[in-house]
Amino acid sequence: MTESLDSARLAAWRAYIESSQRLFTRLEDDLRADDELSFADYHVLVLLSEAPGQRLRMGELASRLIFSPSRLTYQISSMQRRGLVTRQPCPDDRRGSEAVLTAAGLLTLREAAPHHLASVRTHFMDDLDDAEVACLTRIFERLGQRLRSTRDASTPHATS
Rank of each mutant, 00 (worst) to 15 (best):
A33F: 02
V85G: 01
A134L: 15
S7V: 09
T25H: 10
A118V: 06
S149L: 13
M125A: 14
G53V: 04
P69H: 01
R148F: 06
L106D: 08
A134R: 15
V100I: 14
P91M: 10
D152F: 03
H116E: 13
R94C: 10
Q80H: 09
D126F: 12
D41P: 02
G53S: 01
L5N: 05
L107R: 15
R110H: 08
L84W: 12
L37G: 00
V100R: 15
A103V: 15
L109K: 00
R55F: 02
S70R: 06
T150K: 08
R64W: 01
S19E: 15
R71D: 13
T108V: 09
G105P: 02
T150A: 15
M125F: 13
R148V: 14
R64T: 03
S77L: 05
F67E: 07
R110K: 14
D6Y: 03
F39D: 09
Q80K: 15
A153R: 07
S119W: 01
D127H: 15
L147W: 09
A153I: 06
L56F: 00
R146I: 07
A33Q: 14
T25S: 13
G96R: 15
S38I: 01
E36H: 10
S63L: 06
P89D: 12
S154P: 03
E132H: 12
R64M: 05
I139G: 10
Q21D: 11
D152G: 05
L5D: 01
A113V: 15
I66T: 07
L84R: 00
R151E: 11
P156D: 00
A40Q: 10
I139K: 08
A40D: 06
Y74I: 12
A11F: 07
L107Q: 14
L47F: 02
S4C: 05
A15D: 12
L48Y: 03
T102I: 14
L48N: 02
L101P: 02
Q21L: 15
E132D: 07
G83L: 05
Y74M: 10
T150P: 03
G59C: 02
L45M: 02
T73N: 07
R148M: 11
L31R: 01
M58L: 05
A11K: 12
I66W: 04
L47I: 08
F140K: 01
M79E: 02
